[in-house]
Design a binder for these strands. Structure first.
Length: 426
RNA sequence: GGAAGAAUGGCAGAGUGGUUGAAUGCACCGGUCUUGAAAACCGGCGAACGUGAGAGCGUUUCUGGGGUUCGAAUCCCUAUUCUUCCGCCA
């Protein structure tokens, strides 16, 4: 959620940023409506505060009068307070309504893009930030897509998942299951070696948590909702891990707060269909190791680049062709100020698959969740939150299978062998 | 799932209707002392919002929501969580 102070103080920059994010004309108009509503809120509170103050004073007087035995005067004042109370009730209900209206407007505005974000509205407008220079086409024409390899070597089964749960819930088996476990361990070890504290969080969160990181209300339809207990299955570990610091004030010396965690991720992916969803390309449950950082506003972009470096090291170590995109304004997620997407190239499918998204949310999440720090002057300020996948498994598995296939099996990347215990999947 | 009890500031812990944002201790910050540190002593120390150039002032806040009262941390209702006992259970 954008800070009201920014909207009030930097109207032009806000509007320019929203345009870059490609919001509708109606939403641009919201900027002025929000300021007007906030004015209303302020004047309402000023009135209410004065009234409550008067009531408090009168109540004290009444207490004194009773002590001094002046009951009749006390009763007179009681009547006056009763009248004031009527007025205060009206003002209070107005205050409640005004702040609800304000909140409802604020929550529909996306974060402002960083100045380095390219203009554009669609995937083609994304800027290629970095691309490896190895060959993309050095594989046999007979190369199989991963779903066929899966069948050949009994790595995973989507059909079994349908039987157990439904479409999009893969069941990994044998060396396929072991590979999953190896990747998770490898990614976690790399993250903890880089100074991230490992967290194993709950896989379900309550409404407050989902709201704080921005999944609610905008992405309600993307999460599985356990209605009986009103809990949500997490779409990413970002949600529980960042929420660890909801409603907290951290010390300057705590920066940067670096955390990592493995969790399965559950996504309904409502509305997606077609060739994209074949095999492991898009599933409802996948495993992911996430990195989350809470950082001082002055340092967050430096930290973002370090996170990009970290993820780069992972894809390079696995030997996968990759490229890094700096997302354009229109393709970025709602809450992000700057996002780098990592894509790996699948030689058998001949297409790029997104495997990581590393973003700086600046104060967008911390404003919602009141995640603050005490600055040099002892003032409480909103911290910056950042997160990224390091890395999402399903598509990495798909690409490893496809790119490293040979006539007699899939060669396991060196870095994984100490975790898998085998060097060929067949 | 059943029964009983509890929920107060970063933590511990007083407070059962009237200057209580809340004693006290710890932690934390500033100072005195010290070659330095510790100890001791002195002072400060929650948060949000409003208002003001600022000092400040006002309002709200004692788990959440609702109620009683002129006035609630304190009384009532309700939700949640925790503790103990019972039941079930990896």
């Amino acid at each position: 959620m954008l800070e009201i102070g920014v909207i009030r103080g930097e109207r032009e920059r806000v509007i320019e940023g929203l345009k870059k994010k490609r919001v509708s004309e109606d939403q641009i108009l919201l900027v002025d409506k929000i300021v007007a509503k906030d004015d209303e809120r302020k004047s309402n509170q000023t009135q209410l505060d004065a009234l409550l103050s008067e009531m408090n004073n009168l109540s004290k007087e009444i207490g004194d009068l009773f002590k001094n035995g002046q009951a009749s005067q006390a009763n007179e004042l009681k009547n006056r307070v009763a009248d004031l109370k009527e007025v205060s009730k009206v003002l209070e209900s107005q205050a409640k309504q005004i702040s609800e209206e304000l909140e409802n407007m604020l929550i529909t505005l996306p974060n402002l893009p960083h100045s380095s974000v390219p203009n554009g509205s669609k995937a083609e407008d994304n800027e290629i930030f970095k691309q490896w220079n190895g060959p993309l086409d050095d594989i046999d024409q007979e190369a199989l897509p991963h779903w066929e390899l899966a069948e050949k070597y009994q790595i995973f089964s989507l059909a079994d998942g349908v039987k157990l749960t439904g479409a999009g819930f893969p069941v990994y088996k044998g060396k396929g299951a072991k590979l999953q476990r190896a990747l998770i361990s490898y990614f976690l070890d790399e993250a903890t070696d880089a100074g991230f504290l490992e967290i194993l969080p709950p896989h379900m969160v309550n409404e407050s948590s989902a709201r704080a990181t921005g999944q609610l209300p905008d992405k309600e339809g993307q999460m599985y909702h356990v209605t009986k207990d009103d809990l949500y299955l997490i779409p990413t570990a970002e949600v529980p891990i960042t929420n660890l610091y909801r409603d907290t004030i951290i010390q300057l010396s705590d920066f940067p707060v670096k955390m990592t965690g493995y969790t399965p991720c559950f996504r309904r992916e409502a509305g997606s269909y077609g060739a994209d969803v074949k095999g492991l390309n898009r599933v409802h449950q996948f495993d992911k190791v996430e990195i989350v950082v809470l950082e001082h506003p002055d340092k967050s972009y430096e930290t973002l680049m370090q996170m990009v470096e970290h993820v780069t090291k992972l894809v390079e170590a696995l030997g996968l062709p990759y490229r890094i995109l700096r997302l354009c304004g229109g393709d970025m997620s709602f809450g992000s100020a700057l996002t780098f997407d990592f894509e790996v190239y699948s030689k058998a499918q001949k297409r790029w698959l997104e495997v990581s998204s590393v973003s700086n949310f600046e104060t967008f999440q911390s404003n919602r969740m009141m995640l603050r720090f005490k600055d040099e002057n002892g003032k409480n300020r909103l911290a910056h939150t950042l997160n990224g996948s390091a890395l999402a498994l399903a598509r990495i598995v798909a690409t490893i299978l496809e790119n490293f296939q040979t006539k007699d099996g899939v060669i396991i990347p060196d870095v994984l062998r100490k975790y898998t215990g085998f060097d060929k999947l067949n």
